[in-house]
Design a protein around this nucleic acid. Sequence first.
DNA 1: GCCATATAGTGTAATATTAACACTAATTAA
DNA 2: TTAATTAGTGTTAATATTACACTATATGGC
Lengths: 223, 223
Amino acid sequence: MSKEYHYSYPHPAITTDIVVFTISDGGLKLLLIKRGQEPYQGSWALPGGFLEPNEGLSECAQRELREETGLKDIYLEQLCTFGEPERDPRERVVSIAYLALMPTPEQPEAASDAVAAIWYSLDDLPALAFDHADIIALARKRLLSKLNYSSIALQFLPDTFTLSELQKVYEIVGSEQLDKRNFRKQITSMGVIEETDNLRRNASHRPARLYRAVCRDHVQFIK
Amino acid sequence: MSKEYHYSYPHPAITTDIVVFTISDGGLKLLLIKRGQEPYQGSWALPGGFLEPNEGLSECAQRELREETGLKDIYLEQLCTFGEPERDPRERVVSIAYLALMPTPEQPEAASDAVAAIWYSLDDLPALAFDHADIIALARKRLLSKLNYSSIALQFLPDTFTLSELQKVYEIVGSEQLDKRNFRKQITSMGVIEETDNLRRNASHRPARLYRAVCRDHVQFIK
DNA sequence: GCCATATAGTGTAATATTAACACTAATTAA
DNA sequence: TTAATTAGTGTTAATATTACACTATATGGC
């Protein structure tokens, strides 16, 4: 790790790219920006950008997301690092991809390098810049597999939520209907959510109890 | 992603670090090298080094491992990327960590930056350079959790192996004794290994049937 | 006030999976 | 031939998972 020859050529650039999922209108949505600059000007791409000095990797992801779309304080986890030599036509760029989830989708506001920022339905993605289609495919796979051995689904919901809302998250992400009673038994026996004293009473039917996450962190429960 | 200001400061250096596990003498072992150069000269560290131009990330990991320890053609998967600004005292270095597993441990041969390369027992690790202790902790956690939802354990064994040998891998990595009959039922019903026509007949007892992996790739079986 | 509508909330029986457990088989070495 | 050593095999009990239907409680309209 202390070779000297690494000074003899320029280091690759480092970026982060963020795959932000949310749920709205009964479906999984993905945040894309329209690029305002070359390369791939006018193409859709993941939000992201160059690492700054004295900035941690996840800080960079948070900052780029905020700058390009106005979104902040969202759940982030590192997904994978992409570094094929030819993945960026300008110069060598190694990109650390993040998986991000957010509750009720705020309307993003395009800024910085982005001329547009919108939530795209996953069934209907446009052509994508760079290797971003690969990054998104991996993110979907990761999200799906974590659904059943972690508490990641809670990241799609606000601080309090009903069991029906949580079930809907599992159904949308997992693309399958679930049995209400079995779902409730399972999720409550996992110890990751707890009852609150409050009810959601905003509709013309019986109000539902509100629950909250036992801790806001991400819990893995592989047995 | 097309900010211009990123040219106004030098890019961070990029390295790979490789956490190589193997099993020998009934325990899990980890490959460490003794650093021949500053910083941390004389300290133990993970094998790894700087990314070269036109080299993919996993190629870099393979190459560094070969250069520093003589080991090659081993199973590699990306673990996580570490990029805290102060993790390297020389300059900013972002490192992509790899998890690697190998069957019967060849004796490593120190070369390149390494003045020694040996298999360390995990119960008994020395002080480590950089943030390598964190990387190793994460690698152990990943290995343990993948044991039960993937076929990763096969990477510790040669092309053919007996069921007892495979069981021993699970026992060592998982630190728990397993029931022989239950283990055999489970592993054979997963469809990741198949019988060969050969037996291992080298000891003073009944010979054991040899099995092989159905495919050499890594299979995930989250249901 | 009463009824229609809509979602919340609950238990049990059948099925499938996992866990616990002990003996016989085949080889080598003495 | 016998002792030693590991290979290989099935059944039962316990546990976890699945399938399934009705009652409860609010609102809104009449």
